[in-house]
Design a protein around this nucleic acid. Sequence first.
DNA 1: CAGCATCCCATCCGATACTG
DNA 2: CAGTATCGGATGGGATGCTG
Lengths: 132, 132
Amino acid sequence: MVSQRNSCVSITAGQARACTVREALDRVGGKWSIGILVAASQGPVRFTELERQVEGISRRMLTLTLRNLERDGLLHRRVYPTVPPKVEYTATPMALELYESLVALTAWAERHRTAITEARAAYDREHGAPAD
Amino acid sequence: MVSQRNSCVSITAGQARACTVREALDRVGGKWSIGILVAASQGPVRFTELERQVEGISRRMLTLTLRNLERDGLLHRRVYPTVPPKVEYTATPMALELYESLVALTAWAERHRTAITEARAAYDREHGAPAD
DNA sequence: CAGCATCCCATCCGATACTG
DNA sequence: CAGTATCGGATGGGATGCTG
């Protein structure tokens, strides 16, 4: 298999790898993407249901993020042409795999949550600016 | 061990998990964080060296991202008070662990690169807007 | 060499109002 | 119910110039 057209034109092997990671990050780095993906991973979810589950999201951002996820092939959108419209969003197999790939990252975040908080506090103490 | 203060105040277990992932993403989601982290994982790197290795980065963003990574405890900054200043950045153990946790994500990105590109093309074909 | 300061633009995101 | 449209603020990030 030939190596796919990459969009990562880097000199060093390390930076090429970094670029690959960013490809994934770019699709999931949005403020609401993960929350929506998680909700849609449990099975088909309707628009209003998402609006409730993903707390704090606005109607606008929900729509936009849904469109982006659908465009990237991470969500499947099914429309039932009923009188009150009904739309269901489902995570695709690719999205489920993505979620699996995030397990390690979640574990990391949990392991180091305290350390990070303390590192920040120490930094802010040493330098003047809370910046928060 | 009691569960640490969380900053994730969610109703469902799923959304709490999503929030934990975002904690990690927030520290690595920046446009340049990964590139810098990767470069600093191979050993101590100097400012100008980073500027060359992380291609396309501006002096400003390099500085800002370095400060953030240092603040989060992901980079160690060592200053040699020599006549031409010399500063070395090194990835901390925590950062190395983070990098390891990203392996799965990298693999995912590589596996689905083509599928995503095609999904986008298909979406753009079906709907009018290239948006790119 | 390793930065900080300033200006400026692009994108993200929230609030609000309207609709098939 | 499931959106779309519009406005405006916040944030991210590039370009450039100055400095210990």
